[in-house]
Design a protein around this nucleic acid. Structure first.
Lengths: 237, 237
DNA sequence: AAATGACCACATAATCTGATTTGGTCAAAT
DNA sequence: ATTTGACCAAATCAGATTATGTGGTCATTT
């Protein structure tokens, strides 16, 4: 006669619980910032015991990393669903998501109010050179299609796009209320400015538009896949 | 019989001394930041007694304000001497000066390492709405000449230019050494990006180039004059 | 009149101590 | 096999206390 014991838990439930914990953490960090958000708070808001959280992640930082990766994946999936067909639309969708997601915005801007002591840590872009590399490859394809300026390094174009997004997002925050433009307009301006700076002077040949759309879709597939794998690592599954 | 007394000093010498003090302050603040720079240090480096400094400015902050205003005037005069003839050249010259002047750059970026507790103070652009207004007026002239996009508010264009400059300058600082481009290239990119974002799609009519150059020169005259007056106030003359 | 630098009130920094919080563990419960 | 929450060491915080440094003044000197 064997003891009944507790039956193994459904892995799907485990995953659901992990997400519930991340949901709680996301809300708390957005509201109180990283430093003031304790594991106890997260556990209470997620309706689990503190020890349970450590069944999912070894440290607080790993929980936070998982949260960021989930958010990043969600953002990229959302962008992909919009199915942007040009570089400009892609940047516009990315910017729109950045504006709408406090956590991603905080990461992009290095907002110490939210990130607390993690502010000076590794930049997100440096953290995953793969994502940067994917974007550079994408730019190379665009160049072949005559969609971006051909005679300057892709690395530089990446810097330009980054600077434009950063500049608009940041200055917006520290602007008097009266001078702020609506979100939609801001996003339009970012996309337009970045595209003008990086794009070829003239419109790409009409015949290329299909190839460009395909390249864009493929780029998004690639980065979504990368983000998905990173997240999987962080969820221990 | 009267005592000889000390003869009145030459006002020119007083002014020269004021500048010597500001020179000392500039060097110290660039090196140690505002918080760590004491009046005693400044006095010692300027070769005067502490009390002498208070013959020129009532408080430490007023000394600092004078320093910034002098730097600003110097920067604008330098730009004017380059005689930029287009918006793009103007922005390029401004950016070049910003890159070259640590104090101005610190102000533009709100660098707390240099500004110390003054970081959260009034932004420089808010401080002098006159300068912003002058630039808006300049943009209006350019619009009449077909040099900038006509159907969007000048206010917005000002924001765009600010965002571009800020974005490039800031991201440059937090970039790994290996990815940094040389100063000249950075400046070119800033000018080009801002100009593309704000300029009319097509090149302005050749007939307008003279008027544009005149407007640019007039704009610089205006702001140099404003800056000169502000500085005069700060020097008590 | 013009310049100085010793002087002082006050702000800031540094040190210490005790109390509280919090990330992480693990024996016990299920 | 899972989950829990009391528990602990280590970090953080709050406050008191002391030490140091600094902005600004002014009697004195030139």
């Amino acid at each position: 006669m064997v003891k009944a014991g507790r039956p193994p838990q459904d892995p799907a439930r485990q995953l659901e619980r992990a997400h519930r914990i991340l949901d709680a953490a996301a809300g708390l960090i957005e509201r109180w910032g990283y430093d003031k958000t304790t594991i106890d708070d997260v556990a209470r808001h997620a309706g689990v015991a503190k020890g349970t959280i450590y069944l999912h992640w070894r440290t607080r930082d790993e929980l936070f990393a998982a949260l960021l990766r989930r958010e990043r994946l969600s953002m990229l999936e959302e962008v992909r669903e919009q199915a942007p067909a040009t570089l400009r639309d892609l940047i516009g969708e990315l910017a729109a998501e950045l504006v709408r997601r406090p956590l991603m915005k905080a990461i992009a801007l290095g907002d110490s109010e939210v990130l607390g002591k993690l502010t000076r840590q590794k930049r997100h872009s440096e953290t995953t050179p793969e994502l940067g590399a994917a974007f550079e490859a994408y730019l190379a394809e665009l160049r072949e299609q005559g969609a971006v300026h051909a005679d300057r390094p892709a690395r530089e174009q990446l810097t330009v796009i980054g600077a434009v997004i950063y500049g608009f997002l940041f200055t917006r925050n520290n602007l008097p209320e009266t001078m702020r433009m609506p979100d939609d307009r801001l996003v339009e301006l970012i996309a337009e400015t970045a595209d003008l700076a990086v794009g070829a002077g003239s419109a790409p040949p009409a015949a290329a538009s299909h190839a460009i759309a395909r390249a864009t879709a493929r780029y998004l597939d690639t980065v979504v896949e990368i983000a998905r794998n990173k997240l999987a690592t962080s969820l221990g599954s």
